[in-house]
């Protein structure tokens, strides 16, 4: 795999990758796979009917980390990809995904990833996805991920989705189904600035007895950016669910936060907390009294909040 400097920097930012990673990996650059390796426990095969891959983790396979980053450096490219992640019974793995776009042109670059996760009984997955854009051109950097998650009996997934900088437009749609004794924890971290627009729609169906689902979102909106966050928890059995969305609003930005609880079973216990507010003056004063400038204090508070 030969990468130029822009490509290696993007890979480092979104997947913390330097050089060629060990074990299973799939790296997609400008619409085509450039590196694909399977490992004894994890098989990655291309889809035959459309762009994308099937990543299959063998039952009982434990402890591996697989990297599946995507980067876009060609302006004007619209990349659409379908990936399926099938986690076998009793397997336990970590998947590091992410998408980095470099666009210095005046044409838009767009990546739409359609991801499906199928967790077989008692499997466990940690999924980390970072979104990042860079480049000074007028061309927009657009990311529209669609994610579907099926969690079978006793399986659990922790998803961490982070979008820290440079993505102009994003609409994220996530649908989750949780079986009995299944657990889902979804963590979203989002920062928007300039005239960026970000929208996240989560629908989490807790179908099985003793299933549990959590959506934890923290976001910061700066300047003229806009954010919309919708999270619906649908409790369909003796289950628990919790949504928490907490936002810092700055400048002339706008944030709309809509947690929604739907109980379709009298035994469902669903809760939500939502808060939007500016940085408290006392917090700034406190950090300034420790020697930080006002700007450093603001940056420190935001960085901590989104960590």
């Amino acid at each position: 795999m030969k990468l130029d400097e822009i490509q290696s920097n993007l890979l480092k930012t979104i997947a913390d990758l330097e050089g060629t990673p060990e074990g299973a990996v799939n790296i997609r650059i400008d619409g085509s796979p450039v590196l694909r390796h399977s490992s004894p426990g994890i098989e990655i095969t291309p889809k035959t009917d459309k762009p994308g891959f099937d990543l299959t983790v063998a039952p009982g396979s434990r402890g591996e980390t697989v990297h599946v980053p995507v980067i876009l450096t060609k302006a004007g490219l619209k990349d659409l990809v379908y990936n399926s992640f099938i986690i076998g019974e009793n397997a336990d793995v970590t998947i590091i995904a992410g998408c980095g776009i470099h666009n210095s042109s005046h044409m838009n670059s767009q990546h739409d990833g359609i991801h499906e996760f199928i967790l077989h009984p008692n499997s466990k997955l940690r999924y980390v996805e970072k979104h990042y854009g860079e480049g000074r051109g007028k061309g927009k950097k657009i990311l529209n991920p669609t994610t579907m998650v099926h969690v079978a009996e006793g399986a659990s997934i922790e998803m961490e989705m982070v979008q820290i900088a440079g993505v102009d437009d994003t609409v994220r749609n996530t649908t989750v189904h949780i079986g009995s004794k299944g657990h889902v924890k979804m963590i979203e971290r989002l920062l928007t600035h300039g005239s960026q627009h970000a929208e996240s729609n989560v629908e989490m169906y807790i179908d099985g007895v003793s299933g549990s689902g959590q959506v934890l979102s923290r976001s910061v909106a700066k300047e003229n950016s806009e954010q919309i966050f919708r999270a619906a928890l649908i409790g369909r059995s003796d289950c628990t669910g919790h949504v928490e969305c907490d936002s810092i609003i700055m400048g002339d930005s706008k944030i709309k936060s809509i947690p929604q609880l739907v109980a379709e079973d009298a035994r469902a216990v669903l809760t939500h907390e939502a808060a939007i507010g500016k940085i408290a003056g006392e917090q700034l004063i406190k950090l300034m009294s420790l020697g930080l400038t006002e700007q450093q204090a603001v940056d420190t508070i935001i960085e901590g909040f989104l960590r």
Binding site: R218, D246, Q283, I285, I301, E303, G304, F305, L306, R307
Partner: peptide
């Protein structure tokens, strides 16, 4: 003292 979410 004020509280901070995310600062340890």
């Amino acid at each position: 003292p004020p509280r901070f979410k995310g600062l340890t």
